[in-house]
């Protein structure tokens, strides 16, 4: 039980579009244990992003249960969810979503700002997170002074800085070419070796090959859930 980071039971997420009701998730049940490395795949529109949003507490399910690190979070208030996102979730987005005016260091500090960490402690932790993704020498650069791969690594450092229970990445390499994708995936791999639990959404088989479990969604349901021997770049 204490090993279970994510436990969802019969998760349903419906959208009301005028008279029409769209079921993006039609009863998903899933368990993810600590230090697992999960890739979610599936065709476009199969509900991957919807799933990630619910898992990341950005969205709440229409029905079903969601236990995150032992706590039922599917019925919490907006502000309680904001607190959970701050403490337990690290997001990495396809489009990086860095603040353009802030330096790499300031971007990484942001979750700590909302977590109430101040002053020297905040800077030190942000600096260490940047060092973990290999950007110790780029702290004062702004996003437009960084390459795409470097930006995504800043975003990963930002996701890590609060030591979240889970790192969620929705197509983190979707905007990157294959070489920089490889850089970013190396970072994920290393974090996983260091104990981080990771869930990432991808369309690409090479990316999914880094994970040790691949969950495939189809029409809002889990079509397959397979363990695999991961391939790792040297």
């Amino acid at each position: 039980m204490s090993d279970l980071v994510i436990h969802v039971v019969d998760l349903v997420r419906e959208y009301q579009m005028g008279a029409e009701r769209i079921q993006a998730l039609r009863g998903v049940s899933l368990e993810i244990r600590r230090n697992e490395y999960v890739a979610i795949m599936g065709p476009s529109g199969s509900g991957k992003s919807t799933m990630m949003n619910v898992l990341g507490c950005l969205d709440t399910p229409t029905s079903g249960e969601y236990w995150l690190a032992g706590q039922e979070v599917s019925r919490l208030s907006d502000d309680a969810l904001a607190r959970i996102r701050n403490r337990e979730i690290g997001f990495v987005f396809q489009t990086f979503n860095l603040l353009p005016r802030a330096t790499a260091l300031q971007n990484v500090e942001l979750p700590l700002v909302y977590g109430g960490v101040g002053g020297r402690d905040r800077r030190d932790r942000a600096r260490r997170a940047l060092e973990r993704v290999g950007l110790g020498n780029r702290m004062d650069h702004r996003p437009n002074e960084l390459s795409g791969g470097q930006r995504q690594r800043v975003a990963i450092a930002r996701a890590l800085v609060n030591e979240p229970a889970i790192l969620l990445a929705d197509e983190p390499t979707g905007n990157l070419d294959s070489t920089t994708s490889a850089d970013v995936m190396r970072v994920f791999d290393r974090l996983q070796t260091q104990g981080q639990t990771i869930v990432l959404v991808t369309h690409e088989a090479e990316i999914a090959a880094h994970a040790d479990r691949v969950v495939t969604l189809r029409d809002g349901r889990i079509a397959s859930d397979l363990r695999q021997d991961r391939t790792r770049a040297a």
């Binding site: 990341g56 950005l58 907006d78 502000d79 904001a82 607190r83 996102r85 701050n86 403490r87 979730i89 997001f91 987005f93 979503n97 603040l99 942001l110 979750p111 909302y114 977590g115 930002r158 609060n162």
Partner: peptide, 12 residues
């Protein structure tokens, strides 16, 4: 940016 900040833990 607002969405990002919320994702990172900004309350209302």
């Amino acid at each position: 940016e607002i969405g990002t900040r919320k994702a990172l833990g900004a309350t209302r």
